[in-house]
């Protein structure tokens, strides 16, 4: 099966935009994003499972989830649990979902020391496929910095030598 490629860019220094097209109708993509049983199947990154996920799918409703690292090869992360909480803002079925994403604990308490993120998911019809556009807006650069310093973006140091053509051109 071939996959569509993902693109990402930063806008205005604090909005991260990620796009990816899926070979599925808009209604199905919207459905899997709005249902806890569906979300459990894909929400964790590689080697991470979602042992807990509840969704109260309405504006003001809460989505609470836990991601757990089950991959021994991930060393220090193995066994680690990461709890997250979303509070839905606006739901326009089957086109878009917006929510605020928080770091949380297993009781659903949000962590006041860590920044929240405004997330907008848009499901855009592209022929037989659907493009998912994720916009993650941080409050400001300071907030973004805090998220990064926590090591949420693991493996930060790897790709220094893998620069695209544009970067190579800059050096000339």
């Amino acid at each position: 099966m071939s996959r569509d490629s993902m693109t990402s860019k930063v806008e205005n220094g604090r909005v991260l935009i990620i796009e990816r097209t899926f070979d599925a109708p808009q209604a199905l993509l919207f459905k899997v994003y709005s249902d806890a049983e569906h979300l459990k199947h894909f929400w964790g990154p590689q080697g991470w499972e979602v042992p807990f996920c509840t969704v109260d799918f309405r504006p003001g409703g809460v989505w609470l989830y836990c991601m757990k690292c089950v991959d021994k090869n991930q060393g220090q992360y193995y066994g680690m649990e990461a709890w997250g909480k979303g509070i839905y803002k606006e739901i326009v079925a089957p086109k878009s979902i917006s929510y605020v994403d928080y770091f949380a604990d297993e009781k659903g308490n949000t962590n006041p020391d860590l920044p929240s993120t405004d997330i907008l998911l848009e499901f855009v019809i592209q022929g037989n496929k659907t493009k998912l556009v994720t916009r993650a807006a941080y409050q400001n650069e300071e907030e973004l910095k805090k998220v990064m310093e926590m090591g949420m973006m693991e493996g930060i140091s790897q790709t220094w030598d893998r620069l695209d053509e544009h970067l190579a051109n800059l050096k000339k």
Binding site: R3, F22, D23, H38
Partner: peptide, 30 residues
């Protein structure tokens, strides 16, 4: 720009893994 690029790439990796799973899952559902 190199450091911005490398930061974007790690974030991208996490999202990509999640989207790969979603891709497979959507195929199974369909």
């Amino acid at each position: 720009f190199q450091s911005l690029e490398s930061w974007l790439k790690t974030f991208q990796k996490i999202m990509e893994e999640r989207y790969d799973k979603l891709d497979d899952y959507l195929q199974v559902l369909q």
